[in-house]
Simulated assay, not measured.
Amino acid sequence: MSTCTTVSCELAEPLAATAAVATTWLLVEQNGPWGAKALGESHLDRATGRALEAAAAGTGVRVALIRRPGRHADCPPTTRHGVVVAHTVPGRGWVRRAQVVDPAELLELDFAALGAGDHTGFGAEHVGGPMALVCTNGRRDRCCALLGRPLAAELAAAGHSEVWEVTHLGGHRFAPTMLVLPYGYAYGRLTPESAKDVLAATAAGHMVPEWSRGCSGWERPGQAAEHAVRLATGETGADALTVAQRPDGEGRWLVRVVHRDGRAWEVDVIETVSEPPRPESCGKAAGTPSRMDVLSVRGV
């Protein structure tokens, strides 16, 4: 039986510029099973989950649940919740951690400030290696469970101490998908070997273009432009490039990509649709998802 991932691979659908857009991630530890819409379908208080989602709307903050790899159906409810807040705009990123007894305490945060890159003193700075967040929510898409859970388990067994399952990263058809902090790059179609390569590169301050879906800190046109410049130059420094985009007609953008050494490029990006139709998620009707295509890259 075909899955959304096998169809996407057969069609050689590009990974670039498919990362979920979020300047800041708010990740709340919650053990036990997750439903398809996990913020309202887990052991987390439903009203709290919905309130967190509402508070984050329009601020650039994306809320998700995390848990350690392993069996979850019989896990007791979490009594203390680890919390990770990560700002992922390159050159301005940070990761902060704390624990709360009641996730409702997080409703007191200034979500607009978090989205803008101001942590307002929340928690303490994360110290240690990269954090690997692997999408595993089979209630949302079976590919995430079938492919994501074994990947998370393998990374944990290999000794990576900061491996977490996460409820939703978008792009089920690119499973297994992984978001890596501190830099906020999303990756897809990973194997255990390539995922370990990504984590090693992240620890050294680099990203890996081959499996990159983009940095969540950029809008999708910016993700496409950054990726194109990386391919053209071979630059892999995670914080080496910044982008600024402006509309250039309907469904088209001019994106200025600037290197920290002063070099700059202008990238012409256009939004198209993916043909032929394919399912964006298992069980859904075939559609033509949006894609970002680069028309030109010019040094300026």
Rank of each mutant, 00 (worst) to 15 (best):
V84N: 02
T79C: 05
G129A: 06
A132P: 04
T59H: 01
V61I: 12
G115M: 12
W94H: 06
V95D: 01
G82P: 10
H119G: 03
E125Q: 11
G128S: 05
Q99A: 14
A104E: 06
A86P: 00
M131G: 09
R96E: 02
P69T: 05
R97W: 00
G129S: 04
A132E: 09
G82K: 07
A98S: 09
L107Q: 02
V61R: 03
A124F: 09
G60R: 01
E108D: 15
L109P: 11
A73C: 05
A132F: 01
A86M: 04
G70P: 13
P76N: 05
E125S: 12
T88A: 15
V61N: 04
C135G: 02
A124W: 12
T79A: 09
G82V: 01
V101K: 06
V83D: 11
R97D: 07
D74C: 08
R97Y: 02
A124I: 02
R96M: 01
L109C: 08
V61M: 10
G121A: 07
R97S: 12
H81L: 03
L107T: 14
R97H: 13
A86R: 01
R92K: 11
G121K: 09
E125W: 11
V95R: 00
H81G: 10
L133D: 09
R67A: 14
A132Y: 13
T78G: 13
R97P: 00
A86H: 05
A64M: 14
G123F: 07
V89W: 11
P130N: 05
G117M: 05
G60P: 00
G91F: 08
V101Q: 10
R71S: 14
R96N: 06
